[in-house]
Amino acid sequence: MAQVTCVVCEGQVTLPEGAMEGEILLCADCGTELELVSLDPLTVEEAPQVQEDWGE
């Protein structure tokens, strides 16, 4: 199972099966939401904060 390093706390975050670019991952160590911005090479960034008009 592929893993990526959290950009905030350097904890290891496991990618779910079939992970796609744009997907949000949660770092279990520090709780940061990470956006998977590239699968090759595996790269994550801090996900944008929720905006006022986000949702359904």
Binding site: G18, M20, E21, G22, E23, I24, E35, A47, P48, W54
Partner: peptide, 10 residues
């Protein structure tokens, strides 16, 4: 089209 991939889009 998406800007943040949720379970729904998958």
């Amino acid at each position: 089209l998406f800007t943040r991939l949720r379970q729904e889009e998958k």
